[in-house]
């Protein structure tokens, strides 16, 4: 018995001894396969980010010498780790603070609206197999196929002072109907349009995966539809909802085209502010700082995604 046992262990041990060489080789092949894309990403994306961060800390020489030759209002250090003067300057700037506040509330409101509409569509599709339900779920993905520039212009024209909505209101004798073109409310409409397809796809597919038996069981014990949604569907579909929310938030926060075209000149969102700072104000260093603030905000939201993903597993 003991002998037999040893034999098995020996055999297992032999296999275990044999495997490191094989897995080493596999590991190496894997590494070699992943190296070109990772290297390319590091070189094309990672490296410029590092150079940009270094520039924002006041290092204007080396790789930054060409851009710093033409830039205005630069802060420059000759040695040491760098300075945070620029961060202080930008973060305390009144215009920046106003635009940051606008970015945060536009992002929050857009996320809430996208989730609300996506959940509405998803529930309707989950509980009704009618032609209309299928048509609605198909239609809500349409924005995916329309370029953002064109959609932004269409939204601007639709909600502008001479647009359809105002004209229709005028015909109904409502003369002071608000004009949403060139307002942040218009920007929210644009953001919802752009981000709705992803939210709908995530939440609809998440709801479809919940087995009918769970819903039936809940209804059998007398739960109302609202109760079933609250206690069964929402908890079971939490992960796709969080993913949809974080992706929407990151997308809205860093967006440029929608606020640039539909939004007002001021306050605007951080995307147009960074672009203006870089191009129109010729202050690339300050633009890097704004980009870093956006990055930190996105990391914060990204952390929620990672946490949800880890919990989901």
């Amino acid at each position: 018995m003991a002998e037999q046992g040893t034999g098995i262990i020996d055999r297992l041990g032999a296999r275990r001894r044999a495997s490191p060489a094989a897995s080493d080789r596999q590991w190496l092949v894997g590494l070699l396969m992943v190296l070109p894309p990772v290297g390319l990403v590091f070189f094309l994306v990672g490296f410029p980010i590092v150079v940009g961060i270094v520039y924002s800390l006041g290092h204007t020489g080396g790789f930054n010498s060409a851009i710093s030759e033409l830039a205005q209002h630069q802060v420059s250090v000759s040695s040491g780790p760098g300075t945070l003067v620029l961060y202080q300057q930008v973060v305390l700037d009144h215009q920046f603070l106003v635009d940051l506040a606008a970015t945060l509330w536009v992002t929050a409101l857009s996320v809430v609206l996208v989730l609300a509409i996506a959940w509405g569509v998803a529930l309707y599709v989950r509980f009704s197999d009618s032609l209309l339900a299928r048509a609605i779920s198909a239609l809500s993905v349409v924005p995916l196929f329309i370029p953002v520039v064109i959609a932004s212009y269409a939204i601007l024209a639709f909600w502008s002072g001479t647009g359809f909505v105002r004209s229709a209101a005028d015909h109904l004798a409502v003369t002071n109907f608000p004009t949403l073109g060139y307002t942040l409310a218009g920007v929210v409409i644009g953001q919802v349009w752009v981000n709705l397809p992803f939210g709908v796809l995530m939440i609809v597919s998440g709801l479809q995966r919940i087995p009918d038996v769970l819903i039936d069981a809940s209804r059998d014990v007398g739960a109302s539809l609202a109760r079933t949604v609250r206690s069964v569907l929402v908890p079971m579909n939490a992960l796709p909802t969080i993913i949809a929310a974080t992706f929407t938030a990151i997308g809205v926060m860093g967006s440029f085209t929608v606020p640039f075209l539909i939004g007002p000149a001021a306050p605007t969102m951080l995307g147009p502010l960074a672009t203006n700072t870089f191009q129109s104000y010729n202050e690339p260093q300050q633009a890097e700082v704004i980009a870093m603030v956006l990055f930190i905000l996105a990391v914060g939201v990204g952390a929620a995604y990672v946490w949800a993903n880890a919990r989901g597993r």
Partner: peptide, 8 residues
């Protein structure tokens, strides 16, 4: 460039 920033 400065005018653009100050106007804004």
């Amino acid at each position: 460039a400065d005018l653009n920033r100050l106007w804004q």
